[in-house]
Structure formats: C-alpha cells, structure tokens
Amino acid sequence: MEGPGRPLILGIETSCDETAAALVTDEGEIRSSVVSSQAELHARFGGVVPEVASRRHLELVTPVIREALAEAEATLEDVDRIAVTRGPGLIGALLVGLAAAKAVAWSRRLPLVPVDHLDGHVASLYLQPDPLEPPFLCLLASGGHTMLLDVRSHTEQQQLGSTLDDAAGEAFDKGARLLGLGYPGGREIDRLARGGDPDAYHFPVARVPGFDFSFSGLKTALLYAVRGLGEEELEARRADLAASYQHAIVRALVERVREAAKQTGRERIAIVGGVAANSELRAALPEATAAPLALCTDNAAMIASAARWADAVPYPRYLALDAYASR
C-alpha cells in the first residue's frame, strides 16, 4: 500500500453529463475515480439537456471531489496539481468544473493543468495496471466524437479522420429512440442486439473518402425500416433491427480502423470512448486494446492521466482561463 503524502493529481471532469473527480499518481495509478452519471436525469428528455446538465454539475461538483478524496484516503494536502477539462463540450457545463478547479488551485497556490477532453480519452489507455505505450492507432468513439488518431507519443498525435455528421454514439442514441428504447441508447441496443440476427436487415455503410465516417444515412435507413412496421411487428423485429443496426455501425468503424492500420503500418490498435464499451465492437477487434470498461465513458481519471503529459499552468496565470465548446 502506498501511504498518503504522495503527490497526487486531482482530476475534474464536467464536459457533458457525468460529474467526475479522481485522484491519480504520477505513475498512472488510480487512487480513486468517482463518476456521478446524470443519465437517468436526462433519460426522460431522450438526450442530454445542457441547462439541466449544468445545474446538476453545480450540485455535484464538490460532493464528487470530497468522495474522491475520501475514497483515496487523501486530503488536498496530498494534491500537487489540479487537472480539469477545458473543452470541448457543453460550455455551461465546462465552466462549472473550471471555476471549481481554479478556486481549489488558487486557494492552495497549486498549478492548474487544462486538459482537452479528447486527449483525456486517449490518456485513459495510459493508466495502471496495463498502460499502453505509444505509438498506436486509436479509434475514439463516443456520443460526441468519432475520430481516428495516429498517436505517436504521449504528446503528439495526428487526426486521420473524423465523422462528417453524427458521432457513432449519437447514431446509437438516435437509433435507440427510433426503436423505442431508453437513453443512453448504446447500452440498450447492445443488450437487445444479443438476442437478434445481425443479418436480418442490410443497412448500408456510407462510403466516404479518406478515413472519415458518416452515420446520418444509417439512421435514415433505420427510420425507413421502422416506419413500415406496426406496433406488434416492431416488437417482434426489435432485436433483429437493433442487431443489424449495431452491426452496421461496428462494421463501419472496424473497416476504417483496419484500413488505417494497413496504411500507417501501425501494429497496435486501441479503442476508447463510450462506444468502446460496445461488446460487438470489442469482439470485432480482438487485436485491439480497449480502454477498461469503467474508463470508456467520461471520467476524471483519464483527465488526471492526460495531465501527466500536458503543460501545467502556474499560479496565477490560469485565473483568466476560459473554457471552449469545440476545438
């Protein structure tokens, strides 16, 4: 057991609908990771409502920090820097975490490390007990983002492609809504698809040039497939529709990843983000390193992890720092 008194990084994440805090060591050991999901709160709206999310972040931001400290059996005395998500995300939500992070850092004269949320997802791979070392090819797929990255080092990466319209996770959510399933949609479709036939329907995968993705056509195809069905018929075909729809999304992702691996010559592949929790995607890329399930969805351990390589802003320069909604 490592005793307290070790310098820890306090990570804070409030970019979307998870309020999270974590304590991570410089070596990438997670001492605590607390995530308070708002998914249930947003379920009745069928998606994340920014104003509702921001209100909840304010209520939860200090309780999750307290819980992370308690779980790690640490105090702020053990913390030597504060890492916080600066963007991209919902601006009103980001500002809650940033204001709290600045306040904690300022009151103790600690440096602040502003972290890009997407770098955070990649850095979920650098945590103990099985950290992945760059270089590798990384698929980042979540409710807000879908991109292929050539990760060259802990600080250098090149974006090879990204989605031209919906993110993969968004496609799952929209599909779930068309199928009358709950929110978040990814988990619901994944669960239902296990009892369905992935070849029952053929949903087309958009062919776009380069390493980009497109999922909006897929959603339209599902809409047409569902529209002709009555209530009972939909009930009977729901699992097949979910399985076929999921299969199409996974196929699109896997094809691109394999093409990119071939072209870049990268031997190692990694998948991160909420969609990396999808069981079919994990099975379809057995050679890939998937982020641990608990670190796929938004969390603060990945933000603290990214801070191990990002530049710390010393006191008092970070006091004027602003959040950004998009990159």
Partner: peptide, 19 residues
Amino acid sequence: SFTGVRIGLAAARGLALSL
C-alpha cells in the same frame, strides 16, 4: 445569467472545500 450564477457558486464551493 444562469451560467454566471453557476460560475460564482462553483468558485465558492471550491474555495469552501479547499479552505
């Protein structure tokens, strides 16, 4: 402003927690 009020209260919560 909702966002403005939240920034102030989030800062206050951070200060109170830390100090």
